[in-house]
């Protein structure tokens, strides 16, 4: 009991210190701003932000696998979709509570991450990319041509979790929790091992790390969070169909993580918000919107290799320091 209290105190202490740093205050400020969105009462804005938050979790899970464990997957939509389907199916056909269904969906995502992860263990680079892509394509085709779980039309008419503002806070808490857990994992000993494997697998192997196990653990964690994102996606839209397995979603994750900045976890949030909000803002331009979107995408990727989060934050920090010094 004593020990726990001390731990809590030291944790709170660490939190206070972190909160006073530049990054800490920016993060808390953004989070505070985010949580105020529903207060504006704007349903449309809230809907977009909910979608962006779901994509944040998804992109972060991809960043976890690719950025930290070095396993670049082109088939992340498989985890996203599997969980979306099973969450929807358990809510619709079994009638369990949505939160139970969400974790069941996440569980299925873990199983599938093993199904994909084990055969792909030997693969690297483009081979791994195509291997994972092939898996997601097969699952997509199976659901598209099959008649199980609703066939082409999928499952629809799921009960809503509540009005959009309730959904907002549910998704927000899932996002914050998922990101903190993922960040904590990569900062822990496990994260260090994963980075070691990413940087030099042979070397890691030689120093007695069981690379196979750790790579699979990375796949499972990443798959689980992608699954949570997929489940939330289905619950938010109240419908799911084979389109969730499309390569499109895999690339959503990759692009969002890259725009925000890879190997950061938090960058995914920036990427997802930029991506979603930008594509909504361009909506009135009709056919030109995606063209402009593509152009902006090319410019960001071309000129901001580290993503936009870190460089922008560094600039801001410089300004911040300048102000504080005076």
């Amino acid at each position: 009991m004593m020990g726990l209290q001390v731990d809590m105190q030291s944790l709170i202490g660490r939190f206070m210190v972190w909160a006073k740093t530049f990054r800490g205050s920016i993060t808390l400020l953004s989070l505070f701003g985010l949580l105020l969105v529903p207060v504006t009462g704007n349903v449309y804005l809230s809907t977009i932000i909910v979608t962006a938050m779901i994509y944040s979790i998804f992109a972060a899970s991809w960043d976890f696998l690719a950025g930290f464990a070095g396993q670049v997957s082109f088939g992340h939509a498989a985890f996203f979709g599997i969980s979306a389907y099973f969450t929807a199916a358990f809510v619709e056909f079994v009638g369990v509570h949505w939160i139970v269904a969400l974790f069941i969906g996440g569980g299925y995502a873990i199983i599938f991450s093993l199904l994909i992860g084990i055969p792909c263990l030997r693969l690297k680079g483009p081979y791994l990319a195509l291997g994972t892509l092939a898996f997601s394509l097969i699952i997509w085709n199976l659901f598209l041509t099959g008649t199980w779980l609703g066939g082409t039309e999928g499952i629809s008419g799921l009960p809503r979790l509540g009005n959009i503002f309730v959904v907002f806070y549910i998704v927000a808490s899932f996002m914050v929790a998922s990101l903190i857990i993922m960040r904590a994992i990569v900062d822990s000993r496990l994260g260090t091992i994963l980075k070691a494997i990413r940087d030099d697998e042979t070397c890691a192997d030689a120093s007695g790390i069981n690379t196979t196990t750790y790579k699979l653990i990375a796949f499972m964690i990443s798959g689980f969070f992608a699954g949570i994102a997929g489940g939330l996606f289905a619950l938010h839209l109240t419908a799911v169909n084979p389109a969730v397995y499309q390569t499109l979603y895999s690339f959503y994750a990759i692009i969002m993580a890259a725009i925000g900045g890879m190997v950061t976890i938090y960058g995914s949030v920036i990427g997802a918000f930029l991506f979603t909000v930008l594509s909504e803002l361009l909506r009135p331009l009709a056919a030109a919107s995606l063209l402009i979107f593509a152009t902006i995408l090319i410019l960001i990727i071309r000129f901001a290799e580290e993503g936009v989060m870190n460089p922008v934050l560094e600039r801001l920090q410089d300004v911040w320091d300048l102000i504080r010094r005076r």
């Binding site: 809907t47 979608t51 169909n241 389109a243 499309q246 390569t247 499109l248 979603y249």
Partner: peptide, 9 residues
């Protein structure tokens, strides 16, 4: 490449 979240938005 259908993204049903666009329809809902």
């Amino acid at each position: 490449d259908l993204d049903i979240s666009k329809g809902t938005a």
